[in-house]
């Protein structure tokens, strides 16, 4: 059962091709001996330390060597560090299949103090992408107006609470017209700055993101939203992890143009949100109609609280 879990459930070819053969064999052996049904969510490799499997939550006995990490990095960068330089500045690279490879090492800075690149890479975290189709249904009761219009919404939660997964499924359901029966397929524009939502590879999204969904990949969010507004005339614009003043200006522009905005944000509470001065124009303008706080409980994403445009609590936690 466990090996099947490894090979068919979520351990796709593009992930195990990255691993040195010895480590892959060891992972297979380890998973076969486990009694847990938890799928592998992350494979963490650190030089001089054992491989960690997050999900089953176990460590393998053997130790990761420098050449093991070089092998993984050669696959991740396609032997072309320059081709992933921009992603490397963010600390991770998205590969075919939408899997995210987090990287840590020694930072090399530019003259202005910005990160130029990483060298002496010591840790790699392979986060296995999982599409959770149908997950966005939990948002349905909160995201539609009485006239069945999709409301501008911010999905808020801590890291790893499932925000991007929800966003991806929302794009799919809105683009396919399956969010609810009375809602026709919406023209959805996804601005995917870090290739996390659609995980476009060679121009093709790795995830199902809807038949009426267009993706602008690897573009700054604020700029991308304006570009998509002009270029694709969308009904809904979706983007991940907003926060800068430029993002806020672009969201206000969306609202003035009658386009629904759906985005995500890292925060724990409404007070965290209010404390962010860059976001205050959104509250003053009442642009965002729903603030949905989520969290991860027992490996499932659940809604914790919902606020309306006046920041009134409409679903107490």
């Amino acid at each position: 059962m466990s090996i099947l879990l490894l090979e068919s459930k979520n351990m796709q070819n593009e992930v195990y091709e990255l691993l040195p053969p010895a480590i892959f064999t060891e992972i297979k052996g380890m998973v076969a001996s486990l009694s847990t049904d938890n799928a592998i969510e992350e494979i963490r490799l650190r030089v001089g330390r054992p491989v960690e499997l997050v999900g089953p939550d176990v460590f393998l006995p053997s130790v990761v060597t420098r050449s093991d990490l070089d092998y993984v990095l050669s696959g991740v960068t396609q032997s072309s560090m320059y081709a992933v330089e921009d992603e490397l500045r963010n600390g991770y690279i998205t590969i075919k299949g939408g899997h995210r490879i987090g990287i840590a090492g020694r930072v090399v800075k530019e003259n202005r103090g910005m990160i130029k690149t990483l060298r002496d890479i010591s840790s790699v975290n392979i986060r296995v992408a999982m599409a959770h189709q149908g997950g966005a249904q939990i948002l349905l009761p909160w995201m539609l107006s009485p006239l069945q219009k999709v409301l501008s919404t911010l999905i808020i939660g801590p890291p790893c609470s499932g925000k991007t997964t929800l966003l991806r499924d929302l794009a799919r359901q809105l683009g396919d017209g399956t969010f609810m029966s009375m809602l026709k397929p919406q023209h959805v524009a996804v601005v995917d700055e870090r290739s996390e939502i659609a995980a476009v590879y060679d121009g093709v999204p790795a995830f199902a993101i809807g038949k009426a969904t267009d993706v602008l990949d690897n573009c700054d969010k604020a700029l991308g939203m304006i570009v998509m507004l002009r270029a694709m005339a969308p009904d809904v614009i979706i983007t991940d992890e907003i926060g800068s003043a430029g993002d806020v200006v672009a969201i206000l522009e969306m609202a003035r143009s009658g386009v629904t905005f759906i985005g995500t944000l890292h925060a724990n509470s409404i007070d965290d949100l209010k404390a962010r001065t860059t976001l205050s124009p959104l509250f003053q303008d009442k642009t965002i109609e729903r603030f949905i706080f989520i969290e991860r409980l027992h490996r499932q994403t659940v809604i914790r609280k919902v606020y309306d445009r006046h920041l009134r609590l409409i679903l107490p936690g």
Binding site: S79, S80, M81
Partner: peptide
Amino acid sequence: LLGKIGQDEQ
């Protein structure tokens, strides 16, 4: 140095 350095250096 093939593939080991950034764009400018490459």
